[in-house]
Write a protein that binds this DNA or RNA. Structure first.
Length: 815
RNA sequence: GCCGGAGUGGCGGAAUUGGUAGACGCAAGGGACUUAAAAUCCCUCGUUCCAAAAGAGCGUGCCGGUUCGAGUCCGGCCUCCGGCACCA
């Protein structure tokens, strides 16, 4: 052991040792309980940032802690390697996305290893590897078979300048993230995954997510957006067709004064002869605030009261939700109200508030009593709703339906750097799936990336032209690639296997499968920005894979920890703001242990972490002091082989330190177990070090306590700061590795304080304190409190009304 | 607009079921060591009154309530952050 704490030197030394010793490799072991600890894998941008450091430090502490608790821990890492930045780099610098990506992976892997994270690299996943994306294609085929993958026309975000489709995430304030052109909606034929098939199950499953943050579960519920209502058919005067609408408020059916169709509704095109006028409404479709409508000239008949009501086409009606047509009740819906005011349509009140009546300035959307509603007048609206539904269903006017806001997942991307969709188009046979034995459909390397738009795969003759698997005739391949969210929807399943080719087909219905052994993920850790997208897609995939027979569970992630952002000066770290802290600099300056310690100490994991250069110094000082004290007493410690636990024969100061050690073991353990409160766990270890510093050992038994305390502190600290603890552990004469040690245990008897402080309150105000022995009777405590000198002075001649004793804590005297 | 979350010293944050508000760390001030600086160590550190100490008053966004006792529970607001948003 050297005098100076040199993090760089010892960290590199142990990282090499651990790597050579293969200390993190994981094997199936049915004798031990498994624990699957997973952090969201990174996009290989080339450099890790503070968000990664924090995310992976949290995961690493959990993985190491669970390992020491005796669990068989799976702790893998990989790369979300497909995606646009690689393509953009290729366009800008002329380097192939593949080369760029693998270079970045190389670099980031070094950086992660430099942080001392305990990953089993034998299970590394790289999504742009054909061995991986082959299974994306296989899942696609399975879903195609089951009708869960299908192709349809739909509106997509289109950037006219780049001439390409953009994902929703790539549209910022209705503009293209790259060229800032205004994005338009374009109708294109695209592949979809039928996630809506599982809408109800995904919603129900939310209640099972006990280990998830409530807000994430709520966001998922809102996103799925279940709406229960009724579909009602209205006859249209003069034509045969019925007009079907969806409403959640059948209690307002008597207040309908007009109908609205979405501009894309089939009837709109049929009823409006002037196409230019219809197009002008279409142009205002969607997110416009202004309500625009066009009278069709046709009337519908309200099946409940035979009212004749005009039919409009309106820009605020969405084709994608419900039936694309609505009944408008301006008295009880604010949007309908605005529309009615603008086009001077009648407003008919059918619900009044139970107590008061007032002049209408806006729609009354709350519950109330029905009026002007025929046989239903006088009913409360919630009861009327049920009665009217019953009536409608009996008469055959319509039926109860459930609608969801959740849409099917559009996975087609006109991009190069992604998984090819395994579909072939044949002039004779139409859409033909690639045969399973022909997987993977390899993404060709020799393509030109210009950034001009359109998939570069269209230019690759060798890729494009193929034979039809059905008739053998000339055919061509699908050139769209899959959304990269497909890759991340099942990567946690791929980790269940070691690197190399896998064969999932043989895992179906195999009860001994690795997947069934490791899944579900016991602890998942990542940013809250994935609350809906990635986490929802993964829940969907897990259900699809369950129905294929690969899994016997429905929820992939038992417990979810969403860590906060790393912020500086109140803003998220970003290049444009110039407030980025480079982890490389931090590691170079202070070492990995300090970087890890600070990012875990400064805030609880779920909250935002405010960066502070000075705070890092504080974390460094703690490790420095630990090093210093062990170095100072190195000879004595090494010559002491006893570790004493027997508090009875000790001097008071040694007994105190021994007690504090047990208390710290308890505090650190419970803080980790209780919602991973690492910040308070670290604070407790700092307190213990403070006590060690002021302890002056003299006798042999003092030294035995000293060694006992240091060893336990090292064990407690080892998941947080693996390098320094390993170094000191070995320097004290122990064998490596400290991670093969058991997590320490505390003795409740020793941890108990000999004397406790009793607080004396008078009328709820702190007035005095007494030292007492725990376990003395309530009567005695009362007596001691009243007879206390200071209490007496305050009470004076006043009468004592009541004395409340909280055992072991305080006495409150009411006068 | 709707749905969440959060407001505690100069700062990051503690306070497990209502029971000593401010643990731990940072910053600041003072001191020791040193030719000097850095590093290290020691002391002080919510605020007001008082020269200081002792002591007392006030204090967890604001107003009110429940309670012997409220940062914590209840009612009504304010501010900030996040998500969704013409979903009929």
């Amino acid at each position: 052991m050297e005098e100076r704490y040199d993090p760089k030197k010892i960290e590199l030394k142990w990282q090499n040792y651990w790597a050579e010793d293969n200390i993190y490799k994981t094997e199936r072991d049915s004798l031990r309980k498994k624990f699957y600890c997973l952090e969201m894998f990174p996009y290989p941008s080339g450099e890790i940032h503070m968000g990664h450091v924090r995310n992976y430090a949290i995961g690493d502490v959990i993985a190491r802690y669970k390992r020491m608790r005796g669990y068989n821990v799976l702790h893998p890492m990989g790369w979300d390697a497909f995606g646009m930045p690689a393509e953009n780099a290729a366009i800008k610098h002329g380097v192939h996305p593949s080369k760029w990506t693998y270079m970045n992976i190389d670099n980031m892997k070094k950086q992660l290893n430099r942080m001392g994270f305990s990953y089993d690299w034998k299970r590394e996943v790289t999504t742009c590897n054909p061995e991986y994306y082959k299974w994306n294609q296989w899942f696609f085929l399975k879903m195609f078979e089951k009708g869960l993958a299908y192709k349809k026309y739909s509106y997509v975000n289109w950037c006219p300048s780049c001439a390409t489709v953009l994902a929703n995430e790539q549209v910022i304030d209705e503009k293209c993230w790259r060229c800032e052109s205004v994005v338009i909606q374009k109708r294109l034929e695209q592949w979809f995954f039928r996630i809506t098939h599982y809408a109800e199950e995904l919603l129900q499953g939310c209640d099972e997510l006990k280990g998830w943050p409530e807000r994430v579960v709520l966001m998922q519920k809102n996103w799925i957006g279940k709406g229960e209502g009724v579909e009602v058919d209205f006859a249209v005067e003069g034509i045969e067709e019925k007009l079907r609408i969806f409403t959640t408020r059948p209690d307002t059916l008597f207040g309908v004064t007009f109908m609205c169709l979405a501009p894309e509704h089939p009837l709109s095109e049929k009823l409006i002869k002037d196409k230019d006028q219809l197009d002008s409404v279409k142009a205002k479709y969607g997110k416009e605030d202004e309500k625009v409508g066009l009278f069709t000239g046709y009337y519908a008949i309200n099946p409940l009261n035979e009212d004749k009501i005009p039919i409009y086409v309106a820009n605020f009606v969405l084709m994608e939700y419900g039936t694309g047509a609505i009944m408008s009740v301006p008295a009880h819906d604010q949007r309908d109200y605005e529309f009615a005011k603008k086009y001077d349509l009648p407003i008919k009140v059918v619900i009044v508030p139970e107590n008061k009546s007032e002049i209408m300035k806006e729609a009354y959307e709350d519950e109330g009593i029905l009026i002007n509603s025929g046989q239903f007048s006088g009913l409360r609206s919630d009861i009327a709703r049920k009665e009217i539904i019953k009536f409608i269903e009996n008469k055959g006017y319509g039926k109860s339906v459930v609608n969801y806001k959740l849409r099917d997942w559009g996975i087609s991307r006109q991009r190069y750097w992604g998984t090819p969709i395994p579909i072939i188009y044949c002039n004779k046979c139409g859409i033909v799936p690639v045969h399973e034995k022909d997987l993977p459909v390899i993404l060709p390397e020799d393509v030109k990336l210009t950034g001009k738009g359109g998939s570069p795969l269209l230019e690759s003759e060798a890729f494009l032209n193929t034979d039809c698997p059905k008739c053998g005739g000339k055919a061509h391949r699908e050139t769209d690639t899959m959304d990269t969210f497909v890759d991340s929807s099942w990567y946690f399943i791929r980790y269940c296997f070691k690197k190399g080719d896998i064969y999932l087909k043989s895992e179906i219905q195999n009860p001994e499968s690795e997947i069934k052994y490791w899944m579900p993920v016991d602890q998942y850790i990542g940013g809250v920005e994935h609350a809906v997208l990635h986490l929802l897609y993964s829940r969907f995939f897990t259900r699809v894979l369950r129905d294929i027979g690969l899994l016997n569970i429905s929820e992939p992630f038992q417990n979810l920890l969403t860590q906060g952002m790393v912020v500086k000066d109140g803003a998220k770290m970003s290049k444009s703001k110039g407030n980025v802290i480079d982890p490389n600099y931090l590691i170079e300056e202070y070492g990995a242990d300090t970087s890890r310690l600070f990012s875990l100490f400064a805030a609880p994991p779920e909250k935002d972490l405010d960066w502070s250069d000075k705070g890092v110094e504080g974390a460094y000082r703690f490790l420095h002091r630990l090093w210093g004290i062990v170095y100072r007493y190195r000879d004595k410690i090494e010559n002491t082989r006893d570790r004493t636990n027997n508090i009875l024969n000790l001097q008071p100061s040694a007994a105190g330190l021994c007690r504090k050690t047990h208390q710290t073991i308890k505090k650190v353990t419970t803080d980790i177990e209780r919602e991973y409160h690492f910040n308070t766990a670290i604070a407790a270890m700092m307190e213990l070090l403070n006590e060690i510093t002021s302890f002056e050992p003299e006798s042999d038994s003092d030294w035995a306590v000293f060694r006992f305390t240091i060893e336990n502190l090292l064990l407690l600290l080892s998941p947080f700061c693996p390098h320094i603890t390993e170094e000191i552990w070995v320097a004290m004469g122990n064998k490596p590795s400290i991670f093969e040690q058991k997590w320490p245990e505390w003795d409740e008897e020793i941890a108990k304080e000999e004397k406790i402080e009793l607080v004396i309150q008078v009328n709820g105000k702190l007035r005095s304190k007494l030292m007492i022995t725990p376990g003395i009777s309530e009567e005695e405590i009362k007596k001691m409190a009243i007879e206390d000198q200071k209490t007496k002075e305050i009470i004076g001649a006043k009468a004592i009304k009541k004395v409340i004793v909280v055992k072991g804590k305080l006495v409150n005297i009411v006068i």
